[in-house]
């Protein structure tokens, strides 16, 4: 097992324990940790699922909720002490998540419209002059069926990788300038580097939430595009 595997196991267990604790004995008037759990679940259901999917929201809330919290838990390890690397900065992890999103929106679209109508809807959008289909159909095919999962994956992995390297750069720079460098002129720069590293740690918390939100939001948008009646 690599370090990423251990982190994934720990964070999955942490998620399970959190939701088990929150909803072990649910009460009508929530108290303590149940409050936190309800706010978190409500955020995904109201802000993402119902906002984007409308009356289709109910079927996909489970998928979107799982996706949001898994992505968030795997992102936040980038700044947690002792772990210090986001599980999502290894491309295999976002690839699986992007692939599940891919399966989800294609399944939803095929189930809603049937395979023929679904492909027709995506590849031959109505209202286009006939010769232009030579141009439109390949572009739509590539952008819908290839670039959607690829960009979902790359967006997540690149954000987490960039954040990790930024923190390494600033803390490594602080360590070098403060302790390893001979010139005392470098000490103020080292202090600056340390402060910047701290600031970017806070920024990474924001990025972890934002990327989880965007990943789930885009999945919801893709599903909504697949199940909507006509474009």
């Amino acid at each position: 097992m690599t370090r990423i595997n251990v982190i994934m196991l720990i964070m999955t267990a942490a998620l399970l324990i959190f939701f088990f604790m929150a909803f072990r004995r649910p009460q009508v008037v929530p108290r303590g940790i149940q409050n936190v759990g309800e706010v978190a679940l409500d955020f995904v259901r109201v802000q993402i699922a119902e906002e984007i999917l409308g009356h289709h929201a109910k079927r996909f809330t489970v998928l979107l909720t799982t996706m949001f919290f898994i992505v968030l838990a795997f992102n936040i390890t980038g700044i947690l002490p002792l772990m210090h690397i986001a599980a999502n900065s290894l491309i295999a992890v976002p690839l699986i998540l992007g692939f599940s999103a891919y399966i989800a929106f294609n399944y939803a679209g095929i189930k809603q419209h049937g395979l023929k109508h679904y492909l027709q809807m995506n590849l031959f959008p109505p209202g286009v002059p006939l010769p232009l289909y030579l141009l439109v159909t390949p572009i739509e095919a590539v952008s819908t069926f290839i670039f959607r999962p690829v960009t979902l994956t790359i967006r997540l992995v690149a954000n987490m990788l960039a954040g990790h390297m930024l923190l390494v750069l600033f803390y490594g720079g602080a360590n070098y300038l403060l302790f390893a460098s001979d010139s005392w002129l470098m000490k103020p720069l080292g202090v600056f580097s340390f402060v910047a590293g701290f600031a970017f740690t806070l920024f990474e918390i924001l990025v972890a939430f934002l990327q989880a939100y965007i990943f789930t939001l885009l999945t919801a948008v893709y599903i909504s595009g697949a199940v909507s009646e006509e474009h």
């Binding site: 790359i154 967006r155 960039a162 934002l210 939100y213 965007i214 939001l217 885009l218």
Partner: peptide, 17 residues
Amino acid sequence: MFLGIAFTEALALIGLV
């Protein structure tokens, strides 16, 4: 706005990768 940012930002991230 977040949707628009996500689509625009993808290009920069592809440049990074």
